[in-house]
Design a protein around this nucleic acid. Structure first.
Lengths: 353, 353
DNA sequence: CTGAAAGCGCTTACAG
DNA sequence: CTGAAAGCGCTTACAG
């Protein structure tokens, strides 16, 4: 079957308006140098025809290159989590690089505010058209965002949001609600009067708001549902296994009624490791993120539930949002909350992180 | 920034091979009329250059139209489920129609085998390049698949699979495993010795295998975990509310120890309606699918969990698989199991069905 | 068996 | 303020 041979697009508009396609192109892109009369005439015709530009042709003809920068924590054994976002970035990159998009990847140390600042300054020295960032440090991120806004660089945030009206989009979890759901799952199998322990494991005091929001959601569930379980909470600032094990064993010794542990981030695998080594079997363990280590304990029935939010997809969508905005010129959702996924031993094999 | 001015693509290949781009095009598409020597020469150069065709240019230049057909159950009040796949098809359509893809949508009555046969014959009378089908009726679907294979029409199955080596791809749930997970969730909050009731609600005897697979998965969990809960099962063939209510109330009267209900499809909302009307509060209810009706009962704490598998995305991905295969000529996964999503009152607002 | 030319729907200089 | 031409990387007839 062959396409019918009717003029469409710029040519048809030009024909109707009795101008050249060059002029049509000028008004499509709102460039200067067109008289008001021809401009409004062309605009009217475009509207009448419900003109939709052919993106294929546009990209093919355009010689513009676009540069995106990404700034996320570097990946280490301790922060395996950040592997997934990086994969998402690379996935998006491979899809759109043939359309003239280049991505420069920057990384910072999530325990070191200064590294974030250093890297963000580096980015500002280059010329970029769009930015994806995981804004772990609130103040520094706001500062960075301000500079970007001055340079009119659209920014997408992933993983956690910061209060910022001017960003193009946030793509990530609703942290409070994920904590709320965790509480529901925890409560579900809990004996009436048992105590619950919330465990925040994090070196950086700065990245802490992130965990706090989950904790608040968790507490809110028990409050809203008038459950009177006592909730204890500990902060663990030393993230090596031994420190974690000691703190937990002390706490459990003092509070033998604790029947559930809620770990507010991916360090849940360390807690699982402790439970395994100590042979503790009657404590419910709920935590975050789809890391290999944790899956292992899910498999062993030591972790009951993991809450996950598709970090790879967050980053993928983030890049694609920039692409949509800058190349396709389509609308982008200002806030895109990821689904709050519940992972268990029975469904983890089907999960796409 | 401007692209560098180096020859790439067919032109560069042509230059190196000392032939015209027409000839290069012939070997790229494996058309006849090229001498073996030039052919292998061009092939070698393509390999050396790691030639990647520019899809944009290809679609732009090509005047070929592709026609896809879709065959899924029609949507009614009773089968609201099928709204989502239709939306997925339309979503994909709107994305790829500008690239010359047309989609013809066919529907059948999921309670009527014959309507499936009639529609599939209709499709075979038209000329199509690809097919998406929800193969609810095994034998008839196999027959249809056979005809398609003879005509070399690639087929994608969604929602449920049929044993068929020749299909391009299956995109949908692992039914057995979704039942297995349901059992885990059911067992989770269940008093030790309580009975469990499995409820299959379906008019069509033919579409039944679908539900059975979930049931088997469900039973397998209890068996594998050496739980001795008695499991009762009823089949309800009259799908109006009254019939359902009567059957369940009879069963519960005979078995007062039943503390959990597992409904193997979206009709869980009717069961919820019954529980609500009867004022029964201490029975755990688990079922399938993200329907408005069911969400309402999730909200009211009558349904505890819904298992969902993104029906819209299944269909969307299905169409895109055909597009990828036929237009982009890229690999397509033979079997793509959807994640098994757990929906609760606390996370449904973030779900993307 | 092969080449030269036109064209897909745009954008980009350049010229006036 | 506007137009004519070249070109993006392909495909498609057509001619030989």
């Amino acid at each position: 079957m062959m396409k019918k041979n009717i003029l469409t697009g710029v040519k048809e508009i030009a024909r109707r308006a009795n101008v050249s396609i060059g002029t049509v192109d000028r008004v499509i892109h709102n460039r200067t140098g067109v008289s008001e009369t021809t401009k409004s005439n062309i605009l009217a015709i475009m509207k009448e025809l419900d003109y939709q530009p052919n993106i294929l042709a546009r990209r093919l003809a355009s010689k513009k290159l676009l540069k995106f920068a990404t700034l996320i924590p570097s990946m280490s054994k301790e922060t395996e989590f950040w592997k997934a976002p990086l994969k998402g970035i690379e996935q998006a990159e491979s899809e759109i690089k043939q359309y003239g998009i280049e991505i420069e990847k920057y990384f910072y140390d999530q325990n070191d505010k200064n590294s974030f600042v250093t890297q963000s300054k580096k980015i500002l020295e280059t010329e970029i058209d769009g930015l994806l960032v995981a804004p772990i440090f609130i103040e520094e991120s706001l500062e960075f965002a301000k500079s970007c806004n001055q340079l009119k660089i659209p920014q997408v945030f992933i993983n956690s949001d910061i209060p910022n009206e001017s960003r193009l989009s946030y793509i990530g979890p609703d942290l409070f609600q994920s904590g709320y759901l965790s509480a529901r799952l925890t409560n579900y199998a809990l004996p009436e009067s048992s105590k619950i322990l919330i465990i925040n494991i994090s070196k950086g005091i700065d990245a802490y708001h992130h965990l706090l929001e989950k904790e608040e959601g968790f507490r809110a569930y028990f409050k809203n549902n008038k459950k009177n379980n006592e909730i204890i909470k500990i902060d663990i600032k030393q993230t090596d296994y031994d420190s974690i094990a000691i703190r937990i064993s002390e706490t459990l010794a003092l509070n033998p009624d604790i029947k559930a542990l809620f770990v507010t981030n991916s360090r849940v695998f360390s807690v699982a490791q402790y439970l395994e080594k100590s042979g503790i079997k009657d404590i419910l363990l709920v935590g975050y993120d789809f890391l290999e280590n944790s899956i292992e304990y899910l498999e062993k029935d030591i972790i009951a539930f993991l809450i996950c939010q598709k970090p790879q997809e967050q980053a993928y969508k983030g890049i694609m949002s920039l692409y949509q905005k800058l190349v396709l010129n389509t609308e982008v959702e200002n806030t895109y909350y990821m689904p709050i996924d519940i992972i268990t031993k029975e469904n983890y094999k089907f999960y796409r992180n």
